[in-house]
Amino acid sequence: MTTPRTGKPWRHLLVWLHVVSSTAWMSGAAGLAILLGLSRSDPALAGAAVGAARHLDVFLLAVAANASASTGLVLAWTTSWGLVHHWWVAAKAAITLVQLYAGIAILSPVLDELVAGGTPAPAAQVAGAAAMASAVAFQAWLSVAKPWSRTPVARRERARGRTKLPPAGTPLVAAGVLAPVGDVALTVALGVPAPLLEVVVLGVVGVARRRALTRTAPAAAAPAAPAGAVPPAPAPRGS
């Protein structure tokens, strides 16, 4: 019989990895803003500054952002908080997805062009990096303050009799820890951000949790007996 403490070391590792990767993401974005700002203030250093910024983006910022996003989503899915049951968790997830899109589709391609041309960064690029660091800082505040109420999804669950989501098993939590570590090795080997294991684990965890919560969904509350009704007599016990 498993004890309630089973899996706690893995959960602690997952929380620790999420905090560390989020801090690295924020620090990397701040460093990126400084380097890009330097490319604008000192044209003689523009080529070196944007080159260092791209190296920072590939080997720190992108890796940390992917790890922060994957561990945060796994934490939400595998704990009683849920992903869409509290507004502050849903807000963190939405901000994370927007930042990943902005980094992959907007900031990184511009960095490649700047490195190729050795030109200073546009002001919008500096502002984007600074906004990314600020957004991660805001997400940290959300984690500490946990503002706002529960979402309509949580209220529906409570009406059905479920007041708290059951935590997931150890294998899913452990996968959330090991996937970012493996993807760091892939990124170093390939020379480009490669969150392959994290994407696979997120898909597996999401599907597994959805199925598990569906199987354990509480039954609708039985209607109350009318006033004055006589309860049925207990069945006789066998000898």
Rank of each mutant, 00 (worst) to 15 (best):
V98F: 05
L17A: 09
R156T: 11
E198V: 00
G37E: 04
P234F: 05
P231W: 12
P232V: 03
A49I: 03
V19C: 04
S70K: 13
G206W: 03
I95N: 00
G182A: 13
T214F: 02
S80R: 09
A159K: 15
L13E: 08
W87N: 11
A123E: 10
A159V: 05
A116Q: 05
L107C: 06
A212G: 10
W25Y: 11
V144D: 03
S22K: 03
R150S: 07
A102I: 02
A33N: 07
V84W: 10
P234A: 13
A52Y: 01
P147K: 07
G47N: 07
A220M: 10
L142E: 09
F59M: 04
A123N: 03
A135S: 08
L13H: 10
L107R: 11
A124H: 09
R11H: 15
L202V: 06
V188E: 12
R215K: 12
T96V: 03
H86Q: 11
V89G: 01
G37P: 05
L75P: 08
L186F: 15
V84C: 12
A175I: 04
A212L: 10
A220S: 13
G238H: 05
T163R: 13
A52G: 03
R155N: 10
M132A: 11
T96N: 01
A52D: 03
V136R: 14
L14D: 12
A133C: 12
A93F: 06
A175L: 15
A105D: 15
L196N: 01
R54N: 09
P43W: 00
V184E: 14
P232Q: 02
G128H: 08
Q139M: 12
A137H: 05
W88R: 02
L172Y: 14
V192T: 02
S27R: 04
P193G: 00
R150F: 08
G228D: 13
A235E: 08
S80F: 07
A222I: 12
A76D: 06
P180G: 14
P218W: 03
L36Q: 11
W148R: 06
A189T: 11
P9C: 08
A174S: 10
V136H: 11
G72C: 09
V192K: 01
L100K: 02
T216R: 08
A69I: 02
A116V: 01
R210L: 15
